[in-house]
Design a protein around this nucleic acid. Structure first.
Ligand SMILES: Nc1ncnc2c1ncn2[C@@H]1O[C@H](COP(=O)(O)OP(=O)(O)OP(=O)(O)O)[C@@H](O)[C@H]1O
Length: 656
DNA sequence: GGCCGCAAAGTTTTT
DNA sequence: CTTTGCGGCC
C-alpha cells in the first residue's frame, strides 16, 4: 500500500483540472509564468502516484537542465522511491533509444555523436575530395551545413532551401546535391550521427517499423513541455508516439514564447495541435504567478503587437506591486557595463541575493564588457553562453582519443587525433585512415603500421605516436580500466607536449581536462560517458565562473537560454534596436520572432526589471576608433511599444 | 608534403 | 578576436 503524499493544494482550479485530467490528449496553451511547467510536473507526479511506471512514461523537455529539474521535482512530490523517470530532451531520448533499438535500421550501437564543428570538418573534407578546386563563391562548409540542417528540420527539399535562403548559390545546385549525398554516406559509414540524425533515425524507427514500435515505444503516458519550440520532425515523432499508446499525451506551451525558428521550430505545432489530433481537450491557464502587474503590463503591451498568435493577456495572480520597469540609456558600451556592475554591487549591499539576479542579452558578445567589469569588482558570476565545455578544442582533442576506442570507424575522430602527429598533414593522414578503416581492430594493424605508407622521417614520429594509441587501446581492453584512467594516460602521452605547444593558456586547459576526468568517473563505462555526456552541452570549466565566492553567483545568460527560468531582479543589456532587429531581421515573421524573444526576456522578471543600452553604437568600445561616433542607437522598438508601462517613458526628443 | 607566418575576412540565437 | 587562405621555405 502506497502512502499518498502528493499535495495538490498549491494548485489553482485550472491547474488542478489538468493535473488530474483523465488519460487522453490534452493541450495546455497558456502564457508565461502561468504555471505550465509546474502543472506538468504535478501531473507527472499524480500519474505516478496513480500507478504509472516512471520508467515506462516519457517526459520530453527542451533542455537537459529542465528535464533534470522536472524529474527531481516530480520525484520529490511523491512518496518513496518509485524508480527513475524516463525523461530528457528529444535528442537525449533519441540517443538512448537508438543505442538499444538502432539495429533495426542498421545502426551499430557504438555510434559517435558529432557536433557542428565535426560536421564542418567532414563537409570540408568531402568538398575537397569530391569537387577538388572550387569557385571562390562556392558556399562555405558552414553555409552548406546550415542548408542541410534547414532542409531536414523544416522538412523542405534542399533545392527549396537554397532558393529561399541562398539564391546566389543556386547555380551550384548540382554540386550541393553531390556534396550532400557524399557527406551523408560518409557520415553513415563512419557510424556518426549529428543532432539532426538522432531525430531522423528515431522518426524512421517509428515510421518504418510500426509493428515493432508498438512494443519498443509504448509509453503509459507522454508529457511534453515547451511544445511551441518543437520542429517538424519532433512534431511528427510526438504524433507517432501518441499513435502507439492510444493517445495518452499532454503537451504544454505558449506560442508567444516560440523563439527557435532558426532551428526549424514551428509554433503551428501547438496552434494546430487540435486539428492534427482528434478528441483534444484544450486547457487554458490565465493567472501569472511570477511577476508584478508592472512587469506584466509591459509584457502585454509588447506582445499584443504580434499578429500571428493566440492572444492571451497575462493577469497577475497576486496584488503585489513593484516598480515599473526602467530604461537607462548610457553613453557607450563601457558606461553601460560600469553602470550595470555598479548597480548589481549596490543591490547586493542592500541585501538582495546574487542568485536572485540575472543579466540577459540577445547575443553572447554583448556580455564581454560586463564580464570584465564584474571581474574587476570581484562580483561572482556564472555565464551560460559562449563556447560549451565540450566544444573547447583541448577537450575535443581528448574526447577524439576516446571516441576512436569506442567506434573505430569514426574517421572524424581519427582525423583529429592523427592531425596532432608531427609530420603528418591532410594528405598523409587520409592515406593512413584509409588503411585503418579497413581493419576491424586497431591492434591488427601491427606496431609498425604505416612503415610502407610514410617517408622515413615522418614514420619516425608516427611510430611513436601510433604506439601510444595502441597502448591506450590495450588499456581500454583491460578489465577494470575506467575513462578516467584513459584520460590520465592521454595526459601522460605526447599529447601533453602538444597541449603546451599548441595552446597558450595550457595550464587552464590542463585543469579542464582534469575536470573532464573527474566528470567521467560518475559514469558507469567509457561508452556511456562518451554517449551521454556529449549531449549535455554543459557550460562549466575554468572560464565559466569568476570571483572568489564559492556560494551564490549572478547569472549571465542569453535570452534563449533563459527560457523557463525566473529571477527577482533582471537587467536586460543592449536593449537597442540594432541588437534585436539587426540587418538579418527582414520579414514580418522575423520581427515577430524577435518580439517574442523580447517578450520571453521581460517575462523572466518577478519584480525588478531594468533595460540599458549604449547610445553610441560602437560594439567594440572606445579603444577602437574605427566606428567612433558613426551611429546612434535607438532604444529597442519593442520597448517603445510598451512606453506607457515604463518608469520614465521616452520623450521623442530622446530618440535619435 | 608539411608547416610557419602573415594578411584577410567573418560572427545571432542551440540540441 | 578568432578561423581561413596563401606564399614561401624546409
Ligand atoms: N498555483 C500556484 N501557486 C503559487 N505559485 C505558483 C502557482 N503556479 C505557478 N506558480 C509559480 O509561478 C512561477 C511560474 O511557474 P512555471 O515556471 O511553472 O510557469 P510557466 O507557465 O512554465 O512559465 P514559462 O512559460 O515562463 O516557462 C513559478 O515560480 C511557480 O512556482
Amino acid at each position: 500500500m502506497i502512502l499518498v503524499k502528493l499535495n495538490l493544494s498549491s494548485l489553482n482550479d485550472d491547474q488542478l483540472k489538468v493535473v488530474t485530467a483523465e488519460k487522453g490528449k490534452h493541450l495546455v496553451l497558456a502564457g508565461a509564468g502561468t504555471g505550465k511547467t509546474r502543472t506538468l510536473t504535478y501531473r507527472t507526479a499524480y500519474l505516478i502516484e496513480k500507478g504509472m511506471s516512471p520508467e515506462n512514461m516519457l517526459l520530453l523537455t527542451f533542455t537537459n537542465k529542465a528535464a533534470r529539474n522536472m524529474m527531481f521535482q516530480a520525484s520529490s512530490l511523491i512518496s518513496g522511491n518509485r524508480g527513475r523517470i524516463n525523461g530528457g530532451t528529444f535528442h537525449s531520448i533519441a540517443n538512448r533509444y537508438l543505442r538499444t533499438h538502432g539495429k533495426l535500421i542498421g545502426l551499430d550501437n557504438n555510434f559517435s555523436i558529432i557536433d557542428s564543428e565535426d560536421q564542418r570538418d567532414l563537409v570540408k573534407a568531402t568538398v575537397a575530395e569530391t569537387l577538388g578546386k572550387l569557385d571562390h563563391y562556392f558556399p562555405t562548409p558552414r553555409v552548406l551545413i546550415e542548408m542541410f540542417s534547414n532542409s531536414i528540420n523544416k522538412n523542405q527539399d534542399l533545392e527549396d532551401v537554397v532558393v529561399q535562403n541562398s539564391p546566389q548559390s543556386f547555380e551550384y545546385m548540382k554540386e550541393i546535391f553531390d556534396v550532400y549525398a557524399a557527406y551523408t554516406k560518409r557520415k553513415w559509414n563512419a557510424n556518426c550521427l549529428d543532432y539532426d540524425d538522432l531525430l531522423i533515425c528515431w522518426h524512421r524507427l517509428l515510421a518504418d517499423f510500426s509493428e515493432e514500435s508498438k512494443e519498443l515505444f509504448f509509453h503509459e503516458d507522454i508529457l511534453v513541455d515547451e511544445f511551441q519550440d518543437t520542429n517538424k520532425i519532433q512534431g511528427e515523432i510526438v504524433d507517432l508516439l501518441a499513435n502507439v499508446n492510444g493517445g495518452k499525451l499532454t503537451v504544454v506551451g505558449d506560442d508567444c514564447q516560440s523563439i527557435f525558428a532558426f532551428r526549424g521550430a514551428v509554433y503551428e505545432n501547438i496552434l494546430e495541435f487540435k486539428d492534427r489530433h482528434e478528441d483534444v481537450k484544450i486547457h487554458y491557464l490565465k493567472r501569472n504567478y511570477r511577476s508584478t502587474s508592472q512587469v506584466l503590463n509591459l509584457a502585454n503591451d509588447i506582445i499584443k503587437n504580434n499578429k500571428k498568435q493566440f492572444y492571451k493577456e497575462l493577469v497577475p495572480a497576486s496584488k503585489s506591486v513593484g516598480p515599473r520597469p526602467r530604461i537607462m540609456p548610457l553613453p557607450n558600451v563601457n558606461a553601460e557595463a560600469t553602470w550595470v556592475a555598479k548597480k548589481i554591487a549596490e543591490r547586493f549591499q542592500d541585501g538582495f541575493r546574487l542568485s536572485e539576479m540575472a543579466v540577459l542579452y540577445r547575443n553572447h558578445s554583448h556580455s564581454a564588457f560586463l564580464q570584465a567589469e564584474l571581474v574587476k569588482r570581484n562580483i561572482p558570476y556564472q555565464i551560460r553562453s559562449g563556447v560549451r565545455f565540450l566544444e573547447q578544442a583541448h577537450i575535443k582533442d581528448v574526447v577524439a582519443h576516446l571516441k576512436i576506442l569506442i567506434n573505430s570507424k569514426d574517421e572524424i575522430a581519427w582525423t583529429r587525433v592523427i592531425g596532432m602527429c608531427p609530420g603528418i598533414g591532410a594528405v598523409r593522414s587520409r592515406k593512413l585512415i584509409k588503411e585503418i578503416l579497413k581493419s576491424k581492430n586497431i591492434a591488427d594493424l601491427g606496431q609498425d603500421f604505416g612503415k610502407d605508407l610514410l617517408p622515413e622521417k615522418a614514420y619516425r614520429n608516427w611510430v611513436i605516436f601510433f604506439n601510444e594509441i595502441l597502448s591506450l587501446s590495450s588499456l581500454n581492453h583491460q578489465e577494470h580500466s575506467t575513462a578516467k584512467d584513459l584520460i590520465v594516460k592521454i595526459m601522460e602521452s605526447s599529447y601533453s607536449d602538444y597541449l603546451q605547444v599548441k595552446y597558450k593558456n595550457a595550464s587552464n586547459r590542463e585543469d579542464d581536462i582534469n575536470q573532464l576526468a573527474q566528470l567521467s568517473d560518475s559514469y558507469k563505462s567509457l561508452k556511456s560517458f562518451i554517449s551521454d555526456f556529449v549531449l549535455l552541452g554543459e557550460m562549466f570549466g575554468s572560464d565559466v565562473v569568476a570571483g572568489t565566492d564559492k556560494g551564490e553567483r549572478l547569472i549571465l545568460s542569453t535570452i534563449h537560454q533563459s527560457k523557463g527560468l525566473e529571477w527577482d531582479m533582471i537587467w536586460i543589456i543592449r536593449a537597442c534596436d540594432s541588437s534585436f532587429c539587426g540587418p538579418r531581421t527582414v520579414s514580418n515573421d522575423d520581427i515577430e520572432e524577435e518580439r517574442r524573444v523580447f517578450y520571453v526576456a521581460v517575462t523572466r522578471a518577478k519584480r525588478f526589471l531594468t533595460f540599458t543600452y549604449p547610445i553610441i553604437a560602437n560594439e567594440w568600445g572606445g579603444a577602437n576608433t574605427k566606428f567612433q561616433g558613426s551611429d546612434m542607437n535607438k532604444p529597442c522598438r519593442f520597448l517603445l511599444e510598451g512606453n506607457d508601462s515604463l518608469d520614465k517613458p521616452f520623450r521623442s526628443s530622446f530618440i535619435y
